[in-house]
């Protein structure tokens, strides 16, 4: 029983490290798109997906460190990401982020 527990622990450790490496490679490819993206919407979408990858990284690191203190951070990154992407989209679409009168 003790052996099985240790085996599971090592398995989770190794698989989370492999997943962190995979997400990091994805972030690097997205950084290439952010730098060389031909248009500004490409960069906006790439930054949005980088944020999603950062949420995944936070969750994986929480698994690696065996901690529940990062759960709020994941939700926080998601909310700020949504608001930032909406602001970027409004700026690209209309030129202003907060309009005075919309009707």
């Amino acid at each position: 029983m003790e052996e099985l527990l240790n085996f599971t622990k090592t398995l989770i450790h190794i698989s989370s490290i492999i997943a962190i490496i995979g997400v990091s490679v994805s972030v690097i490819i997205l950084l290439y798109r952010t730098m060389r993206g031909p248009t500004n919407p490409d960069r906006a979408v790439a930054l949005d997906v980088i944020g999603v990858n950062i949420m995944a990284l936070t969750g994986l690191i929480a698994i690696l460190l065996v901690s529940t203190q990062f759960n709020d951070v994941i939700l926080l990154i998601g909310i700020l990401l949504f608001i930032g992407t909406v602001a970027l989209a409004k700026f690209l679409e209309k030129g202003v982020i907060i309009e005075r009168d919309m009707d």
Partner: peptide
Amino acid sequence: FIGGLMASAALVLMNMAYGLDV
């Protein structure tokens, strides 16, 4: 601090969606 920032994020989102005057 972070709670206040979240509440102001909600207010900013409402301002972005509905406009300043509303």
